[in-house]
Design a protein around this nucleic acid. Structure first.
Lengths: 248, 248
DNA sequence: GCCGGCTATTTTGCATTCATTTTTTGTCCC
DNA sequence: GGGACAAAAAATGAATGCAAAATAGCCGGC
């Protein structure tokens, strides 16, 4: 029994479903490699916000023709990293303050979800590993090592997402994280001493809820933690005089 | 100061950032229209799972060349609706039971987030509107009108997402909803009498928490509600003898 | 000297064409 | 008659070509 497409009657060949399960097989084709390279390049923030990027230049730089490049650009646009203005090319997407607030909230929701799910399936070993990271992070905190702190912090949050055992969630999380990472000041969130101490306390609460597998509670704590992060980030955005220079 | 791309030194022209804010300007271009049409077509489930979709046929059917079509396919693949096997064309993505579970959980997380955010900003008028929908839905429930019930139900959930005032969340929600909608049996979830009654009670609780703007509580209730939906759906999948015929 | 309209160049969007890979089919041999 | 191999056919991946739109440059006018 074949489906047909309306107005045409073109038959769709219903082939037997094979259980191939691969999330990204992009490495093979050219447009796939281009996609990976371009995405990394944009995420790393190498292109200034709103910068116009002529296709021709990118083609020369990557040594390919415009066809696969344009395919990659369409995907990046779908991911929200760039925007394509009709007949006017691709621009690195400009994130308004509102956009950032929204992104942070969505990240908060996803991590909140991750925590809830993690409580259902996380092993003692995984909790121990997270505790390990926590103590490591605490050490960095005591030594005022922002970079180390930030890295440990990120690994903790990643571990929680991993413990949720949900690849769909994981990739959505990665997508949004990428959009935010473009905005560099991440490393500057915790500049303010007070916020830093607060964050440590919140992390204690996170760990505590996780140990007790208190899903609903962990969900709350994580959300609030990310919410506070958001507030700090936005504050930092609106009065950046304290942080590092905006553009080198 | 211009950025340059590594290994080439090609300058990126840093144009002044204009605050253009449009989420989807796809309607204009051809590939954009193709994208919308194809997406709808796939989401509506017109193409059997895992069916191979020859580019040539689609081109003839849509009356375009392969270039814009392929661009649209890349985007659909990025959205998770189809998968592109290297050198072997596009297939409608096959969702395993695990995939569905994951999707449902992510949806649950997003709605849970939506509820929490909604409590921060929702107006009395919006709550009244949702109450209206709720009573309408209750009527459909009493009359055993599954279709009407399902529609009202969907509008309630949409209203909550809208009330969250977060476009990023809204579009992510729409994306995942599309992936799930492909799987048809949605309309059959509530077949079982008991589940149906349960769902109504849960909706009462949702409305109650919303009225009190109890964000954290609403978040919990919504998550549990969606979780139960998920369980019902999966059960329905594994023993579909009760429902409607699988393919007309 | 500055602004507005007109033309030339660039750039985007799509179609077409070329090269490879896959799939099909026909044939031969067992 | 069935399976394996090989060649043909078709499909995909990428490059090129062409039309339309946008940008930039130029000139004239105020």
């Amino acid at each position: 029994m074949k489906s047909t497409i309306p107005d045409t009657g073109v038959p769709i060949t219903p082939s037997p479903g094979n259980g191939d399960r691969q999330e990204n097989r992009h490495e093979a084709s050219l447009h796939g490699e281009i996609l990976l390279r371009l995405r990394d390049y944009v995420v790393e923030g190498n292109i200034p916000e709103g910068a116009r990027v002529p296709e021709r230049q990118l083609c020369e730089m990557l040594g390919i023709s415009r066809t696969p490049l344009r395919e990659a650009l369409k995907v990046l646009a779908a991911e929200g990293l760039i925007e394509l203005l009709p007949n006017r090319g691709a621009r690195v997407r400009q994130l308004s303050q509102r956009d950032l607030e929204e992104l942070f909230d969505v990240m908060a929701g996803l991590e909140s979800l991750a925590g809830r799910l993690a409580c259902e399936a996380i092993t003692d070993a995984e909790i121990t590993a997270i505790e390990q990271l926590h103590y490591e992070m605490y050490g960095h905190y005591l030594h005022r090592d922002m970079h180390g702190y930030f890295q440990a912090n990120q690994r903790i949050h990643e571990s929680i997402v991993d413990a949720a055992r949900n690849d769909t969630l994981k990739s959505a999380y990665a997508n949004f994280a990428g959009r935010i990472r473009r905005v560099r000041y991440s490393a500057n969130f915790a500049r303010k001493r007070q916020r830093w101490a607060e964050a440590m306390r919140e992390h204690e609460a996170i760990l505590d809820a996780l140990r007790r597998r208190a899903g609903s509670e962990l969900s709350d704590v994580l959300f609030q933690h990310l919410r506070n992060k958001r507030t700090a980030a936005i504050e930092h955005l609106t009065e950046p005089q304290e942080g590092a220079p905006a553009s080198p």
